[in-house]
Design a protein around this nucleic acid. Structure first.
Length: 232
DNA sequence: TACCACTAATCC
DNA sequence: GGATTAGTGGTA
């Protein structure tokens, strides 16, 4: 009576075999990607992509004379206009084809039920491709519109930044002027905000400003009456 | 078993 | 060369 080796697969529980396969997968991936940057699944998928076998269809063969097999070209029968028309109408009603409907259609068309099934299969594929193309062109248009809008917004932001920069420069210049006025003991500038505080005309930026103290500048927006304060 | 993706074969 | 028909293998 011969006893099996302890490592005989037949003696190994299924769970242990699965565990070994998992560990082998991990070791393989680790050797391919030691940094662990790519997941086991992504590496396996990539490997499968690269070694994906091309499916080659065998040519139809028939038994020839003297038991030799001959390669024959498959004859493809084009459907008549009436057949296609009825199939199209049926497809328009419902893209799926139940067994009963298939048999009924096949008998009405004088076709093999398998031919009807294949026709529906191919028709669904054509329909899906068309939908994808439509969806693609819709998304492409949306994308192009978004790019144009982004460009306009970016241009606007640049203009506004320029305006802001100019306004800040002017404020700085006026503050300096104000300080030099004080030091030379001149009388205070008139203001719409207050008679005591210095007022700055920033009309070209759509606003006017007033110095509240050494660290605070008060700005009124003409158009929206919105009032802002910021630290100088 | 029906369905799908992919492909080959064929027609026009 | 595009459209159509049909074979093949994988999957739920």
């Amino acid at each position: 009576m011969s006893s099996r080796e302890p490592d005989d697969p037949l003696d190994t529980p299924l769970i242990m075999i699965k565990d070994r396969i998992a560990r082998s997968r991990y070791n393989l991936c680790h050797s391919l990607c030691p940094s662990g940057e790519h997941s086991v699944v992504s590496i396996l998928c990539a490997l499968e992509e690269t070694v994906k076998p091309q499916r080659r269809r065998k040519k139809n063969k028939v038994e020839g004379r003297n038991n030799t097999s001959e390669v024959v070209m498959r004859k493809r029968k084009l459907l008549s206009e009436e057949q296609v028309s009825l199939l199209e109408r049926s497809f328009g009603d419902e893209h799926k084809l139940e067994t009963e409907r298939k048999a009924k259609l096949a008998s009405e068309l004088g076709l093999d039920p398998h031919q009807v099934a294949v026709w529906f299969q191919n028709r669904r594929a054509r329909w899906k491709n068309k939908k994808l193309e439509e969806e693609y062109s819709k998304l492409k248009t949306q994308h192009e519109d978004t790019i144009i809008e982004k460009y306009h917004l970016e241009t606007e932001v640049l203009k506004m930044k320029e305006q802001l920069f100019e306004a800040e420069k002017k404020i700085e210049r006026l503050l300096l002027e104000h300080k030099s006025d004080i030091s030379s003991n001149n009388s205070p500038t008139s203001s719409i905000f207050s008679m005591e505080q210095p007022h700055f005309n920033l009309g070209e930026f759509g606003m006017e400003g007033q110095l509240m103290d050494d660290n605070m500048f008060f700005v009124a927006d003409y158009q929206s009456n919105y009032v802002t304060l910021w630290d100088n």
